[in-house]
Nucleic acid binder design. Structure first.
Length: 495
RNA sequence: GCCCUCAUCGUCUAGAGGCCUAGGACGCCAGCCUUUCAAGCUGGAGAUCAGGGGUUCGAAUCCCCUUGGGGGCACCA
């Protein structure tokens, strides 16, 4: 049984609170979560807040909100690295003691100058090893004198470091191309590399699943595990998610922050399904998978290697599929907050949930996103409709005919007690033959009078929901509109 | 500039030597349904598998080169 090979699975999602999570981050979280759930493992949330300068207010909350929204529950955490500083300091110290790391006193200015020189000479920008061989005595003296220092990893000058990646296979880096990376910053905080490795080991992480952009720093991590004498976890570098221009996802691609998708009315289950398919696939024909099916089938073997462009039209389609699959009651429940938010302010609040439910039924299969709802059904909530008179004149009909249609309809329409879509249709449809008018024209004119638009939900069901009183007043209003626009009708030719 | 990496329809992808005259999905186009819009159904266009060399009886699938894309090269993660 597969479960046995992975019985100890412990994975983590480790974002840094330097901004709000975007779909790329969340996709990484999702894969980790799916992997944990698939093999009965533990999913941990760890906040990598070691950059005091770049940390953003509210970021931690928005990360948690995003995960909760999508139902990606974590078993441990959030663990904050800022609360574990001693652990990293001890680690750095141990490395210095064992000669795998050293103190560096170079000023930012000097480093800058070195880098510029290297760039000028078309050399890769790297630390030049200025402090690499300082004597222990000198280091001690300068430290005692209060000089600020960082701790750098003493990367071997020769040899190679191999990274075994579950998705990429073996990736080899030659040490000469690697840098003497900073492990501890002068402010006493660890860099990502140190904190990440120390924590992954300390927390017993078995699989590191992260975006592909990290692979080039993985040899350092491998060397760190080795220097500490620790067994490294398994690595799986996930293909990146790109914007439509095939560049790394960023703000300029528009909506990328996960909360924006919620605000626009994407369903979490659709989002999960869609994101899962960015870099992973089940087979050659399945693209609709429930959360349970995803969990049951997820596997590292079926993660691809190629970066994926975030393809919004497909997300929209998929969201529509999920919207239509909702029970009417559930749809109404989910639609309500969006209508409360998006309907014009002059429409009274709170909205009546029963009325919303009857309206929602009619627009459910017409929306791809919940934020389209207000526009789709605003006319259900208004008293006064406003639309151009010409819209009543379907297919170039005479104003007189439009007026006649409107008047005749108001005469045949059923009573309050009998007000239903079925009886409405029974009463109105015969008018088509009686008047020698096509149903297209008859219903078209009526539709505009009832909804103020040329495209709307089914006419009679709409009228049923609107109710007799509202329909009668809309008919009257439409007649008025025609007569006002066409004074020539005034001479009493009305029916 | 240096290092790593990827490469199948516009996009997401299936494909792990013969099942491929390359399959599915989105999008697009057409038709059907129909009182409009959707939804649904049916059909269609769309990839000489980046290009070039090999290996093999046989390659989208293996190897090499080229080209193109992406990522990385901070006291940021």
């Amino acid at each position: 049984m597969v479960t046995d090979t992975y019985s100890q699975v412990r994975v983590r999602f480790a974002p840094s609170p330097t901004g709000f999570p975007h779909v790329g981050n969340i996709r990484t979280a999702l894969f980790n979560w799916l992997f944990a759930r698939r093999y009965g493992g533990i999913f941990i949330l760890r906040i990598e807040d070691t950059d005091t300068a770049r940390s953003v207010e509210g970021a931690v909350e928005s990360i948690q909100d995003g995960l909760r929204w999508l139902g990606l529950d974590w078993d441990e955490g959030p663990v904050f690295q800022s609360e574990r500083l001693q652990l990293y300091r001890d680690g750095a110290e141990a490395l210095v003691r064992s000669g795998r790391a050293y103190h560096c006193f170079c000023s930012p200015e000097r480093l800058q100058a070195v880098r510029e020189e290297q760039t000028r000479n078309h050399l890769p920008p790297r630390y030049d090893g200025h402090c690499r061989e300082l004597s222990a005595a000198e280091v001690e003296r300068r430290l005692a004198a209060g000089e600020t220092a960082v701790v750098r990893f003493k990367t071997p000058l020769s040899g190679e470091t191999g990274v075994r990646d579950l998705i990429r296979g073996e990736v080899v880096f030659s040490n000469a191309n690697l840098n003497d990376y900073v492990l501890m910053k002068s402010d006493g905080y660890p860099t990502y590399h140190l904190a990440n490795v120390v924590d992954d080991h300390d927390m017993g992480i078995t699989h590191v699943m992260r975006a592909d952009e990290w692979i080039s720093s993985t040899p350092l991590h491998v060397m760190l595990y080795d220097s500490f004498g620790w067994e490294p976890p398994q690595f799986a570098h996930l293909p990146m998610i790109l914007g439509p221009d095939k560049a790394k996802l960023s703000k300029r691609h528009g909506a990328t922050t996960i909360s924006e998708y919620r605000d626009q009315g994407y369903l979490p289950e659709a989002m999960v399904n869609f994101l899962a398919l960015l870099g992973w696939s089940l087979d050659d024909k399945t693209d609709l998978l429930s959360r349970e099916e995803l969990v049951a089938n997820f596997s590292l073997e079926r993660i691809g290697k190629t970066a994926a462009v975030f393809n919004k039209p497909k997300l929209d389609w998929m969201n529509g599929v999920y919207i239509r699959a909702l029970s009417p009651g559930e749809f109404a429940r989910r639609a309500l907050p969006y209508l409360e938010r998006d309907l014009p302010a002059d429409i009274g609040r709170p909205l009546n949930i029963d009325y919303v439910a009857s309206v929602a039924r009619l627009v459910q299969e017409r929306a791809k996103k919940l934020d389209e709802l207000a526009d789709l059904c605003e006319f259900f909530f208004r008293n006064e409709l406003s639309y151009p008179c010409e819209d009543l004149l379907v297919k170039g009909m005479e104003a007189a005919l439009a007026r006649e249609i409107l008047n005749r309809v108001s005469l045949v329409v059923p009573t309050e007690q009998d007000w239903s879509a079925v009886s409405l249709e029974e009463a109105v449809r015969p008018l088509s033959d009686d008047m020698g008018v096509s149903t297209k024209q008859l219903f078209g004119t009526l539709r505009v009078a009832m909804t103020g638009r040329t495209a709307a939900p089914p006419l009679f069901e709409t009228m049923e929901v609107l109710g007799r009183e509202r329909c009668m007043s809309r008919l009257a209003h439409a007649v008025q509109l025609v007569e006002r626009q066409h004074p020539e009708l005034a001479s009493g030719t009305g029916t």
